[in-house]
Design a protein around this nucleic acid. Sequence first.
DNA 1: AATTTAGTTCATTAATTACTGAACTTTATA
DNA 2: TATAAAGTTCAGTAATTAATGAACTAAATT
Lengths: 152, 152
Amino acid sequence: MTAQEEYIEHVGLFYEQYGLPKMAGRILGYLISSNSDNNSFDDLKDALKASKGSISGNINLLLNQNMIEKHMIAGDRKSYYKMSINNLENILEAKAKSISQFKNILAQGLAFGLDDNSLKKQNLNEILHYYEFLEEEMPLLKIKWEQKNIKR
Amino acid sequence: MTAQEEYIEHVGLFYEQYGLPKMAGRILGYLISSNSDNNSFDDLKDALKASKGSISGNINLLLNQNMIEKHMIAGDRKSYYKMSINNLENILEAKAKSISQFKNILAQGLAFGLDDNSLKKQNLNEILHYYEFLEEEMPLLKIKWEQKNIKR
DNA sequence: AATTTAGTTCATTAATTACTGAACTTTATA
DNA sequence: TATAAAGTTCAGTAATTAATGAACTAAATT
């Protein structure tokens, strides 16, 4: 196993922890460590020794999650892939979305059972406030990053 | 199916999206929606109609991730569980940890291949800077929350 | 000391998720 | 209009992950 191959496996395992298929993580690992600006479907298939089906499915998964993006080369009908940069902001947006979903789940759950001064309701309300705080802060973080980047 | 049971399934599915076993998500759903401050192992087992093994394994999973905590009642040797509140900060800490892990993966990957002014290196460096930004901001967010809470 | 309680462990089984490979679609050359 | 290229789709299979249930441990009660 070359150092690069080991690296790719490592990245695959890293992403597996966060619920992505290992192959999707390995695609990211390849895109980070490859020796070229232009990485095609077949490059991935060959480097990762995987089937077309698996590469196709995982590329589309990563595209849907805005983790990679496709680019083309004039006079060439292959597609090339790279880690997404336009959509860095999506990391925060995705986080914001999950925060706001969980906030709703909590709020809904608070409607069940128990009187309003039970310990549990106090506890859950505090958690709810924390999520509300995060929900407010995420867009501010995004703005902060954008401003920092305009200056650069 | 009662409204509460439906709610519990819903929470289970929500957490499944984020890589938890469904049963772990259902435990959280029960803890949010139950009618009591004190929810025991057996309450969970009965309400969720699951085996002791599954409840035990998933409770420990949630405890390890600081998503729930155990509390006791004097003169009672059962354990009771509730959603974690002391460790709300862990949401940010966990996020910070994954950000910093990924930052390292990227930095490592940049060591492979290509000359330093390739498009890819420029691209990855920009992503790296974004992660560095997030890495700096997470602790600030934590401080902001703590200060807001002292004032309250 | 025997029994009960509270939970853990782990082998087996069930359920889910991912991968393969062959057939297919679509667009572009020859 | 045939052939090829680039990828997609999907049925079948492989691999992984989760749940069950019975046997077990450790502590408390009779």
